[in-house]
Each structure stands twice: as structure tokens, then as C-alpha cells.
Design a protein around this nucleic acid. Structure first.
Lengths: 218, 218
DNA sequence: TCTTTCCGGGACTATTTGGTCCTCGCTGTG
DNA sequence: CACAGCGAGGACCAAATAGTCCCGGAAAGA
């Protein structure tokens, strides 16, 4: 924020390939570090060292730590949404939802449930601290939810889902189960709670299927 | 530190009424501040000022900030469990679960979804930072879950719940929905997602009821 | 009452960390 | 080839914050 507000066409800010790469390196390093340590527990010196840059570069590309964090919220949000689009954009059946679930569980099990969701943890840490970040995160969650509910709408339109199913509520419930699952899995250092939570949400969605294909997952 | 390293059983640190009160005041203040600002964003000076004590008292009662935080984890865990016992210990029917849900939603709606769950937010902030705190929080979540699953067991034993219902899994799912609901509600500054999430979990439990009393809530 | 023990207050220190600034050197262009 | 502009490096500064220490005074026991 603060970059694209006026942007006089003639007075173009620097556009160097190197500069762009540096900025990217900083964001990438901040993303990595703040994912495992949390936002507040990560210092700018950590970021500087991990990104192989210098203090002046940090402050050349970002006004202060708050702005860096906000940009990270955008950055990470874009990453997550991109990943989720891949898994949800073509969603048309319940089995697609199961595949989506499996991918998330598998990814999280790689670190034994640690670290949780990149967006969720930021939401907890920043919501009571940076109103702007909170708003962006809320927006991102909404977009994420829409990806899911759009898929459910398609399922309903194609007759897979009953008419009385409410895609928006189902999507919200699924996301809450996912976030809560991440949280409990992180606390327990064990993916199991996340699996149980997601299975509950899927079971709930399944109860709205018109023709119960296959058998209950449990 | 330096006090309890040897700790001969006879040489008990004298505990005076005043001292206990001071310690309690510190914990209470830390609890309040760290609930709204988060653990890492709260300084010891904040705690000192809010608790009307002094630096030396902080370090008299707690070795360092980390220990204070760990004690806070215990303190808050005890508070939450006490509250939850009140609502869950006598749980014997689905309507009791609905009452429990309503109480949580109402409490959270008082601050428009802000702040989230005292335990959940600590779990997110501390899990990747303080192994001991993480373990205690995980333990507390487990106890909390047991309160729920015990209630579900009672429901199953009394014939309200079907035999094939798995109280442990249902309890985990319900807790995940609760935590995820807290998280999304906090990000959105709106209780709605929490309600939807809890309703989903309750609906799921309801699908295991033997005699569907009443009609689906939605 | 006298003494010891512990609580209370707050000044002080050291360290961490966010943020500033000056200099050097690369790179592309007239 | 020279110059302008931008990126890189890192020393440096200031504020915040965790942690130390000493002294005064109240309370409990001899």
C-alpha cells in the first residue's frame, strides 16, 4: 500500500530486473521464516540474513515492518489462492472434494501437523493488531470460501447436490473445519485432528448428496 | 531462577497472603492483556502497569517472561476447563449441546467475534515457539475434548445416540469446528462463521441421533 | 521488642530490534 | 568514455524491552 495510489505516468519508480528480484527474495524469505516462527517472532535481521540482502534494501522496498507484513499477507494470500484454484476450480463431484482433502492432509502430514495454515496463523496473530491486515485476510478467506461454494454450486446445478443444500454455509463450515483442524493438529503435532475435522465436514456435505455414491468413508 | 534449584523439602518458600494476591493480580492482568493483544505483543511493562505491581515482583514470582507465559497457559486452561465443565458435565441430551453452543456464540458475539478463543490463539502463537507451552495446550485441548466425548458417551449409553457413533471423533470434529469458527469470526469481526461452523458440527452429531427429535435446524 | 524474612518500589543495565544514512559500485545511455 | 541513476552493503542510531539490584518497610516469630 502506498505504491499504486497516484502513480504519475511520467515519474515512473525504478524498474530494474535486479530490484524486482531482490524484492521477491525478501518476500520469499519473510514468507518462509514467518511461516515457521510466526510474524512477531521474526526480526527484520532474520529476514535480511535469510534473503541475502541488506537493511537499506528492506527499507528501499518496504516502508517499515508493518508494510512488509501487509505485503506478505498479499503474497501468501495469492499463493494459497493460486494453489486452491488448482484444486477447486474444476470441482464438480464429491470425489473431487475428497481428493482436495487428501492433498491438504498429505501436505500437512509432511510436517507432522506443525505450522498450521499460513493464512490462519497470520489471521490469529494480526487480527487484533493490524486492522488493514485483518481486512485483507478476511477478504482472502472470503475468496477462498467462494472457490469452494462455486464448486458446490456446480455440483448442485448438475444435480449431484440436493436443492436444499446451501453452498455458502457448507463452504464456511468446511473452511472452519479446515482451520480448526490445522490449529488442533499444530497444537498436537499430529495430523489426526485435521483429518477427523475434514472428514466431519465432508460427511456433512455428503448428507446433501442426491445419490450416495460409494459408502461412508468411516 | 536461583531459588528453587536445590529446594530442600523443609525449606519451603514462605507464602504470604499478600504475595499470593500479588501473583494472582499479575496473572490476571497478563491474562487480560494477552487476550486482546496477543502474547508476543504484550510487554512486561504493560503487565506491570496493569497489575499495579513492580518489576521486582514480576521476577520474584516468575523466573522470566517465558515462565509467566507458561503459567498463564495453565491459568487460562484452568479457567476454560472450569467454564466448560459447568456446561458439559451434565450433558445428556442433544438440547444440552445446543445450549452449550448458544452460550459460546452469545459470549463471542459480545465482542463481534473479536479475540477468538483464549486457548486457540495461544496455541497458534506458541506452538512453534515454546514446546512446553504447546504440550500443555495440547493436553488442555485433550481434556476439553474428553469433556465433550464423555457427554456423548453418556448420550450413547442412554440410547440417545446410535451405537455406531464415535464420541471421540465427534468431539474432535466439534472442537475443530469451534476453533475454526473462532478463527474465521475473529478475522471477519463477525460471529456468523462461528455459528455456521458449530451448526454444521451439531448437525453432524444429530445425524447420529436415534430418534430425530424436532426437525433439522436449517 | 528485636530480628529475620519476605513483599514492594523503582532506578538502572544490557540487549534486542526497528529504522536511518552514507558510501561504493554496477549498469545502461548520450 | 563519462555520467546519472539505482541497487548493494553495512555502520550507526534510538527506542523498546527483558532482566538486575538495592533499599525501604511490613509482617511474623523468638
Amino acid at each position: 500500500m502506498g505504491d499504486e495510489q497516484v502513480a504519475p505516468p511520467s515519474k515512473q519508480r525504478r524498474i530494474s530486473q535486479r530490484g524486482i528480484a531482490t524484492r521477491e527474495r525478501i518476500l520469499e524469505a519473510a514468507n518462509r521464516l514467518m511461516f515457521v516462527r510466526g510474524v512477531n517472532a521474526t526480526t527484520l535481521d532474520d529476514v535480511r540474513e535469510a534473503s541475502q540482502t541488506s537493511k537499506s534494501q528492506l527499507y528501499h522496498h518496504f516502508a517499515d515492518k508493518q508494510e512488509l507484513v501487509r505485503e506478505l499477507v498479499k503474497y501468501r494470500g495469492a499463493l494459497v489462492l493460486q494453489r486452491e484454484r488448482g484444486g477447486l476450480e474444476r470441482l464438480r463431484s464429491f470425489s473431487g472434494l475428497v481428493r482436495w482433502r487428501n492433498a491438504l492432509v498429505q501436505a500437512n502430514s509432511l510436517n507432522n501437523g506443525k505450522y498450521g495454515c499460513g493464512l490462519g496463523s497470520m489471521a490469529v496473530e494480526l487480527s487484533d493488531q493490524d486492522e488493514q491486515a485483518r481486512a485483507m485476510l478476511s477478504e482472502t478467506f472470503a475468496t477462498w470460501g467462494k472457490l469452494i461454494s462455486d464448486g458446490l454450486h456446480r455440483m448442485r446445478d448438475s444435480g449431484a447436490l440436493r436443492e436444499d443444500a446451501d453452498p455458502e454455509k457448507l463452504a464456511t463450515g468446511l473452511m472452519a473445519a479446515l482451520q480448526g483442524g490445522y490449529l488442533l493438529a499444530n497444537a498436537a503435532h499430529n495430523v489426526a485432528p485435521m483429518e477427523v475435522a475434514l472428514d466431519m465436514a465432508l460427511e456433512h456435505i455428503k448428507s446433501f448428496l442426491l445419490e450416495p455414491s460409494g459408502e461412508p468413508t468411516r
